[in-house]
Simulated assay, not measured.
Amino acid sequence: MKFSAPLVSGRLVKRYKRFLADVILDDDGSEVTAHCANPGSMLGLKEPGSKVWLSLSDNPKRKLKFSWEVIEADGALVGINTSHPNKLVEEALEDGRIDALTGFKTLRREVKYGKNSRIDLLLEAEDGSKTYVEVKNVHLMRKPGLAEFPDSVTARGAKHLAELADMVAEGHKAAMVFLVQRPDCDRLNLAADIDPAYAAAFEAASNAGVEAYAIGCDVRLDGIDAVKPVKIEI
């Protein structure tokens, strides 16, 4: 995935109200408010003074022209925009980078399923068999090399796991793909101390036959690509 234009650098003043971030731009020292497309806590990724990069929209109808894309943390570039993971995983699947999820004929996005939900990606094989793929963004790292999910309580995430288990019960294949938007992690585990209910839901889904995979990203200032397998230690 390539950014449509060069990113603008600055220093983070604060992230607040979940979806807003104030940033002092490097080029002229002005302070702007950027959209933060991330509903999580962003634990460890919102330290004031951190180096950040923003994308600039040319859409005249947008209230906030800037969007927060990348932060420098723990010596690495970390992607924080949670609107990108589905596209990144889609690209990885189409390029065959997740070995267990290959051989599909078609890929569709945001398909209705379950109890008034939409699956992120639906893979359909030549024989008509289906694989339901739910994508979760990951960028929490509290121990070197170990990515963790979630970074805040996610009742919605637990609901998705139960619905994936329902698809398996109906005879389909279902998989959770954790997209690690940072290059410095080679392992992934659940942050059960942050959300024990999600950890319990994951265990139940796994026992029901829901598969889980994780893939890490190469994060650059010109784009982000999901390129390397991450070992799940759950």
Results as ranks from 00 to 15, higher is better:
residue 147 A to N: 08
residue 154 T to F: 03
residue 179 L to N: 07
residue 110 E to V: 01
residue 174 A to N: 05
residue 114 G to Q: 11
residue 163 E to H: 10
residue 16 Y to M: 11
residue 186 D to H: 04
residue 63 K to C: 04
residue 229 P to W: 02
residue 70 V to C: 00
residue 18 R to T: 15
residue 194 I to G: 06
residue 189 N to D: 15
residue 194 I to A: 12
residue 61 K to H: 11
residue 203 E to T: 12
residue 205 A to Q: 10
residue 172 H to S: 12
residue 74 D to N: 05
residue 124 E to N: 01
residue 107 L to N: 00
residue 224 I to N: 00
residue 155 A to Y: 09
residue 175 A to Q: 08
residue 8 V to N: 08
residue 197 A to P: 02
residue 62 R to E: 15
residue 142 R to C: 07
residue 36 C to F: 08
residue 110 E to Q: 14
residue 82 T to S: 08
residue 120 D to Y: 02
residue 191 A to K: 07
residue 43 L to W: 07
residue 158 A to G: 10
residue 234 I to C: 05
residue 36 C to N: 07
residue 136 K to Q: 12
residue 99 D to G: 10
residue 26 D to H: 06
residue 113 Y to C: 08
residue 2 K to D: 07
residue 193 D to E: 14
residue 26 D to G: 08
residue 216 G to M: 02
residue 82 T to V: 13
residue 160 H to E: 13
residue 228 K to Q: 05
residue 28 D to K: 06
residue 158 A to Q: 03
residue 101 L to M: 10
residue 157 G to F: 11
residue 194 I to Y: 08
residue 141 M to E: 15
residue 34 A to C: 09
residue 195 D to R: 05
residue 220 R to D: 00
residue 40 G to H: 06
residue 127 D to A: 05
residue 220 R to S: 00
residue 215 I to C: 00
residue 233 E to H: 07
residue 60 P to N: 10
residue 101 L to S: 02
residue 71 I to K: 02
residue 195 D to S: 05
residue 118 R to K: 14
residue 32 V to H: 05
residue 10 G to Q: 07
residue 106 T to G: 03
residue 49 G to F: 06
residue 54 L to G: 05
residue 18 R to N: 15
residue 76 A to P: 02
residue 148 E to T: 09
residue 158 A to H: 04
residue 200 A to D: 14
residue 128 G to T: 04
residue 168 V to I: 12
residue 154 T to M: 06
residue 205 A to M: 12
residue 141 M to T: 14
residue 229 P to T: 06
residue 169 A to R: 11
residue 64 L to F: 10
residue 50 S to F: 03
residue 232 I to G: 03
residue 166 D to S: 11
residue 65 K to L: 11
residue 103 G to C: 05
residue 145 G to V: 12
residue 44 G to R: 07
residue 95 D to P: 00
residue 153 V to S: 06
residue 159 K to I: 13
residue 62 R to S: 11
residue 194 I to Q: 11
